[in-house]
């Protein structure tokens, strides 16, 4: 059970955007460069995040992307669900229309898989982009201190 590269790289790009958006909107090119991914790939991810109302795009010469809301109002759960779909360990628990398995309703393990999904959702819904931003600033301060110390 793995988070795909889309979810991993997408979250990285979004945190990069949050870090640099204090200076106004951020160009796709600069995010792609800093994250070491192709511009086309970041664009693909940002189209999804824009459709999900997590980021907004600004057109024009000084254009680029900004967060649609304050970073304390965007949860990691929202971002991962937008990019990955529901964090379901098995397909049958998110099938809303009709059961895809004939064992639905008498399955020995369905309850367990539901609690896995609920547990993972609780974790990611409790973390905001602001939390990651704070962690980044603290980590960076420590790293910067290390460099000064060596000099």
């Amino acid at each position: 059970m793995k988070i795909s590269t889309k979810g991993r790289y997408g979250l990285e790009a979004l945190v990069d955007l949050a870090i640099h958006s204090s200076e106004g909107c951020v160009s796709l090119k600069s995010i792609a460069e800093r994250c070491g991914r192709s511009e086309a790939y970041i664009l693909q991810i940002f189209l999804i995040l824009r459709r999900s109302g997590i980021i907004e795009s600004i057109r024009g010469a000084q254009g680029g992307y900004i967060l649609a809301r304050d970073c304390s109002q965007i949860t990691v759960g929202e971002v991962l669900t937008a990019l990955e779909g529901p964090l379901a360990p098995v397909a049958c628990i998110t099938h809303t229309t009709e059961p895809i398995c004939e064992r639905y309703g008498r399955c020995e393990t369905l309850g367990f898989w539901e609690s896995v999904m609920n547990t993972l959702n609780d974790v990611v819904n409790s973390i905001t982009i602001e939390d990651l931003l704070k962690c980044y600033q603290e980590h960076k301060a420590i790293e910067d201190n290390k460099i000064e110390y060596y000099i």
Binding site: I3, V15, F112, S115, V116, L120, V124, H139
Partner: peptide, 27 residues
């Protein structure tokens, strides 16, 4: 890993893995 990757790993992936293993080992 970059600083961003470090933060995502410690704040998100490690927490998810911990919760997943705790749940599976509590049952």
């Amino acid at each position: 890993e970059t600083s961003i990757q470090h933060c995502i790993r410690t704040c998100v992936w490690d927490k998810m893995n911990e919760a997943l293993n705790d749940l599976a080992d509590s049952l």
